[in-house]
Design a protein around this nucleic acid. Structure first.
Length: 120
RNA sequence: UCAGAUGGCCGGGUGACCGCGGGCUUUGCAAGAAGUUCGAGGAAAGUCCGGGCUCCACGGAAAAACGGUGCCGGUUAACGGCCGGCGGGGGCAACCCCAGGGAUAGCGCCACAGAAAUGACACCGCCUACCGGCCCGGUCUUCUCCGGAAGAUUGGCCGCGGCAAGGUUGAAAUGGUGCGGUAAGAGCGCACCGCGUUCCUGGCAACAGGAACGGCUAGGCAAGCCCCACCGGGAGCAAGACCAAAUAGGGACGGCACGUGAUGUUUUUCGCAUCGUCGUCCGGGUCGGUCGCGUGAGGUGUGGGGUAACUCACAUCCCAGAGGAAUGGUCACCACUUGCGCAAGCAAGUACAGAACCCGGCUUACAGGCCAUCUGACGCU
RNA sequence: UGGGGCGUCGCCAAGUGGUAAGGCACUGGAUUUUGAUUCCAGCAUUCGAAGGUUCGAUCCCUUCCGCCCCAG
């Protein structure tokens, strides 16, 4: 599971499928196929200045990272990029609720992806 | 006990499970794996000052301009920081606050009000001692045609003149109070206070105390321009150093083509130079990588010097370091706060805030707690 | 990292030591049968915040808060 680092990767994910669920926003899209490496699951985290000061932003990213570390190996798909965006309530959200938010967002996004693949 | 003042310290603890980053060791061709160890702060923040370090510029440097600092002494690598002292202000006190040089170097400003806002002159006003004029009132004397006239004296008014005491203002009015003095007044004189100059004493100095003299001529603002003294070359780790791909281009040498053409040499002719391709080597340099980068004006302890800031000696310790960026997630118990409750307990919450080249300060934010010293009031002994 | 600028009524803004112009908007009134236009009147109490200098501060100084811009 690799991390997204380049600004261009984040922008491509933002143009893909977006799901808002509870305290998080999930953005996802398929990894571009011109990558030579074998198909991997990649994930990035975003916490903007709207969340608060540096301590609040760091804490939001850490909670998202811990949640993604539990869920994405089970629910994520290889060859896709995922971006988890923290919202104002991410810091105060109970951890179990955060997990269910991400789970339902992932399932909804995957249904949309399958529908797209079926059409195309 | 209550109310305060100052200085310093801490700023959640323990355990379990799952994880993250750096170093080291072992293993492995490598990717990686295992073990072990370390892993945010008092402000890491704001970026307001000062340095280290690196590069650039330069004749050691100095000056102008610009910017900054501003009582005195000390401290320091340096500072606009800190410490001690002085002066001024506040508080019953402990103690706190102060950009606190120069206003006879010059320029500027001082609205409204007020006579006047800096040449103290004009104005209102006070005075009539001196000089002059007018008026008639009173008194006296003389003359008289009994209407009055002249003179003297006293009084009033005006001018010349004297004065800066007083003049509803204002933030501020050219020393203040008292006595004397005068026609009225005035530092005109005297006493005390304030101011200035000189001298003496104490102190390294700022300054303090005292004496004599000056008579007062010096209004405020320099966080207005300015003057004086002192300080500052510029940029910043994206500094800078090294390694170095593909592609394109550059240089040197050699081989092959050497002829038509093109360009340049102001124009024509002649002449000259350049423009091709292949190979080898060299240098610059982009993406990228490595270093800079954690032994330091370092921490802790003891002892010495100093009122203190600080400093010296000895011992001891190694204590984060990055790649867009690790230092976390969850649970249990304890501690604290708030709410509900008679209670047991239940629920919610736990300050401000996240290193990025480093260090010394300053400023700002901060739930709550601890320690020490001191002051005032009350009570007890 | 370094540098520069701004903050004044709900909005746009002038004023830069002496009690804050103007326009739009808003409110009330007049004109009109009604509305628009026009006219009259009103509308700043923390000039982003705190402290200081000054007799007096939106203005000068210091420190904070928020926003914008420039260079790399």
């Amino acid at each position: 599971m690799d991390r997204l680092k380049k600004r261009a990767d984040f922008l491509r994910a933002a143009r893909g499928i977006r799901r808002v669920e509870g305290a998080i926003t999930l953005e996802t899209c398929a990894t571009p196929p011109d990558e030579t490496a074998p198909q991997k699951l990649r994930i990035g985290f975003t916490a903007s200045k709207k969340i608060g000061n540096a301590v609040a932003r760091n804490r939001a990213k850490r909670r998202l990272r811990a949640a993604a570390h539990e869920l994405l190996p089970l629910l994520g798909r290889q060859g896709h990029d995922y971006v988890l965006v923290a919202r104002g309530t991410t810091v105060a959200r109970p951890f179990a609720a955060l997990l269910s938010d991400i789970t339902s967002a992932l399932r909804s996004a995957h249904r949309k992806l399958d529908a797209k693949a079926g059409e195309g």
